[in-house]
Design a binder for these strands. Sequence first.
DNA 1: TACTCGTGGGA
DNA 2: TTCCCAAGAGT
Length: 300
Amino acid sequence: MTSLPIRPAPHTGPAAGEVIVDWFAGAARDLPWRRPGVDAWAVLVSEVMLQQTPVARVEPVWREWLARWPRPSALAAASPADVIRAWGKLGYPRRALRLREAAAAIAERHGDVVPSAVPELEALPGIGTYTARAVACFGHGQRQPVVDTNVRRVVARLVHGRAEAGTARAADLDDVAVLAPVDEQRAVRFSVAIMELGALVCVAGTPRCGTCPVRDRCAWRLAGSPAHDGPARRVQKFAGTDRQVRGRLLDVLRAAPEPVDAAALEPAWDDAVQRSRCLDSLLADGLVEQTEDGLFRLPA
DNA sequence: TACTCGTGGGA
DNA sequence: TTCCCAAGAGT
């Protein structure tokens, strides 16, 4: 007699997307850019700041930016130096320059109004697949699949039964779209809800499955929570990299009220070759400029 | 596709 | 202490 595998009965309750939306109603964080009356420009600014940057660090800077530059045209009129300084230490300061360029494009091409069409959003500097849909959905109330690293991890586990998400791909959008509720209002809520689930419960380290609203239908749990089988993804080194050196150099220039000479940058990093290479790359990126008399400063 | 691009908090 | 990693985009 053949032994049949023991498996849980297929889930027959409400669809996972509906359950996640209902969970969100009671579990959502009260983040300032989610409050009523926050316009698409404020949402766009938040989304760019949140790229690879934790919520706690973004909050105060976001408030300052919106108070100072309440419309795209206001940001477009600011100098790169002001924008880079206001960016503070959020990291990846090229985002600040691109956000300013996006603001200029919105002011010039879209009448100072953040567009709602995804292709128009994706055409803006610094706005890619994720951010374009996030702005269309969260800023304009549009039904859109919004896929970030949290969502890809939730889908990997819940739908595909894998411990970790692989490399991002176009099909990720379809995976999420089929989970979304039919009702448009709930579909919009779903897009933020599944992100929140990944950020609070279905986390990268040790998932808190005990509090997960869809644990009874999670393909990964039903498969016995198998460990990740693929290649371990490389951890990004930082100490000693050009990224660290660029950060040090920019730190000096952010703090300097006047242009400085090359000697003033020496304390930032001992290795002269690497220091010079990084300064060149900052110049090339438009994060630093050289005055006529050879001094360095943030671009005026 | 794989790599680069900051920063700092928490496990 | 060391390591992981956090609402990606551009090349």
